[in-house]
Amino acid sequence: MSARPTVSREEFDALFEAVRTWGRWDRADRGAWNRVTGDHVRRAVGVVRSGVVVPMALPWNTRSGPDNRKPALHHMTDLGDVEGPEPTTHKDFIAADYHGKGVTHLDALSHIAYAGLLYDGRPARENVDAAGARFGAVAALGPLVTRGVLLDLPAVLGVPWLEPGHPVRAGDVRAAEEALGVTIGEGDAVLLRSGHVRRRAELGAWDPATASAGFHVDAVPLLAERGVALLGGDGDSDVRPSPVEGVHSPVHALAVAAMGVPLLDNLDLEALAGATAEAGRYEFLLVVAPLNVPGGTGSPVNPVAVL
């Protein structure tokens, strides 16, 4: 299904204004995460039944490919041959330019600006420089614990995966809620499974920057109305090619810059899809612990679902 541009820039700007939440919270650097209170966390813990724990991070990928233009780094720095008393040690080094397609990561509010403005109308040039972000940094979010909801669109449609370029629209979200017996609520984390990881495993890698399944912008008002606090998927939430002329990542702009909703990119949702199908329920406790990087625009993460 094509996702060729169908939304004008003027229509997109009007949508941006309609969903933005600037000025709503005193802790603006936390954005929509302000919705998640202690009571919400306790309710999220209450959905745990079996105790099955499902990690959702991709393997640390050090191999170059069409979907990994900047491979992560991993090398050993100590192989037990350093002189000294027992015991000997083995140490390694890791690094990643993680805002891409190859690393599972969290986008903080400082990651995206639209028309030169970060979330809450903060000028990007005044708040992000070579030293990092002074507003909307990942450290302001801290650990994220809430109820997660999986929208498994291939399961709903009876297909192994959505083809790259397939847009998930508002009607698809409602149909998935009905079919899966789950309703998105305030403070929830919504995870979209397109089957990206399964398609890559069976057919090989492609460049998801040019073609990937994801949310169409017309799904965003529904997510805004429900009051979501976190959005993620096995792609980067945006359908590509973009349906908005001149805006390459419109869902990023709407979620992060307008609504203050952090994003989880490049999840592996295959094990979670199997676990939720077996359990017959598509809600779970979600735990995301980003690295405490002062000024960071995000962080590599290994999100965990607990059923």
Rank of each mutant, 00 (worst) to 15 (best):
284 F>H: 08
51 G>V: 12
232 G>I: 13
81 D>G: 02
203 L>E: 14
258 A>G: 12
171 G>P: 03
300 P>M: 01
264 L>W: 04
70 K>N: 14
307 L>M: 13
128 V>K: 03
127 N>Y: 05
218 D>L: 09
23 G>A: 12
251 V>D: 06
51 G>P: 04
106 L>P: 02
235 G>S: 10
240 R>G: 03
67 D>P: 01
24 R>H: 08
132 G>V: 04
206 W>M: 05
76 M>K: 07
39 D>M: 00
207 D>H: 12
223 L>A: 01
190 V>L: 02
10 E>A: 11
130 A>L: 08
37 T>E: 08
116 G>Q: 14
127 N>V: 00
204 G>H: 09
34 N>D: 11
198 R>V: 13
28 A>E: 13
139 A>P: 01
204 G>A: 11
257 A>C: 11
7 V>D: 01
113 A>E: 14
186 E>P: 04
133 A>E: 09
22 W>M: 01
218 D>Q: 10
233 G>Y: 03
60 W>Q: 03
266 N>C: 14
76 M>C: 07
208 P>I: 12
224 A>R: 11
224 A>V: 07
146 T>P: 00
101 K>E: 15
279 A>N: 08
293 V>C: 06
287 V>C: 06
204 G>S: 09
115 A>L: 12
65 G>D: 06
129 D>N: 15
53 V>M: 08
140 A>Y: 12
149 V>E: 08
175 A>F: 07
22 W>H: 06
178 E>W: 03
214 G>I: 15
239 V>I: 13
39 D>Q: 09
151 L>A: 01
173 V>I: 14
36 V>R: 01
127 N>D: 04
12 F>E: 12
294 P>T: 11
181 G>E: 12
98 Y>I: 06
80 G>I: 12
254 L>H: 10
305 A>R: 05
94 I>S: 15
23 G>D: 10
286 L>E: 10
7 V>H: 01
87 P>R: 03
14 A>M: 15
266 N>L: 11
49 R>S: 06
252 H>R: 13
272 L>D: 03
224 A>C: 06
78 D>N: 11
292 N>K: 15
127 N>A: 08
302 N>T: 15
136 G>E: 14
101 K>R: 13
76 M>Q: 09
155 A>D: 09
198 R>P: 02
297 T>C: 15
168 V>W: 01
30 R>E: 14
20 R>T: 13
148 G>C: 08
227 G>V: 15
2 S>T: 11
20 R>G: 06
74 H>F: 15
229 A>T: 11
234 D>G: 02
129 D>R: 05
122 R>D: 10
285 L>H: 07
115 A>S: 14
124 A>V: 15
79 L>F: 07
151 L>K: 01
50 S>G: 10
276 T>Y: 10
61 N>Y: 04
254 L>Y: 10
159 V>L: 05
252 H>P: 02
124 A>S: 14
58 L>M: 12
96 A>M: 07
261 V>D: 06
146 T>F: 13
85 P>Y: 00
194 S>D: 00
90 H>G: 06
39 D>I: 00
136 G>C: 09
26 D>F: 00
195 G>R: 01
53 V>G: 03
36 V>P: 01
197 V>L: 08
102 G>C: 08
298 G>C: 14
109 L>G: 04
31 G>V: 00
163 E>G: 04
235 G>C: 09
180 L>W: 07
59 P>S: 10
41 V>Y: 09
268 D>S: 06
130 A>I: 00
204 G>W: 12
199 R>K: 13
11 E>F: 10
288 V>W: 00
234 D>E: 05
67 D>C: 03
